[in-house]
């Protein structure tokens, strides 16, 4: 079995860790917005923190901070 890079969900990346976006899926408007905000495949994303109530999460991408709802983040696969 050839080694394939494990694909995880961004939602599962622990706080403080980074990952590289591999695929973005979901509703078209959400995906388009995520892509335009810089989360294109190949981009490094760092999960910074989550809100006090657990949702949304703050990620760091391309040197700025973006708040994303977990439901939207579910479509972001990383490696």
């Amino acid at each position: 079995m050839n080694a394939t890079t494990a694909h995880r969900l961004l939602a599962l990346v622990p706080i403080g860790s980074s990952a590289v976006v591999s695929r973005v899926s979901g509703a078209r408007t959400v995906v388009r917005r995520l892509l335009e905000m810089g989360l294109v495949p190949g981009t490094t994303v760092t999960v910074q923190r989550e809100a006090p109530l657990g949702d949304p999460v703050e990620v760091r991408v391309r040197n700025y901070a973006l708040s994303i709802r977990r439901a939207d983040a579910l479509g972001i696969e990383v490696e």
């Binding site: 509703a27 408007t29 959400v30 917005r33 995520l34 905000m37 949304p56 703050e58 700025y64 901070a65 973006l66 708040s67 994303i68 709802r69 939207d72």
Partner: peptide
Amino acid sequence: GPVPTLMLELP
């Protein structure tokens, strides 16, 4: 309408 997404920059 489309479910409101919160994608918000934290400046």
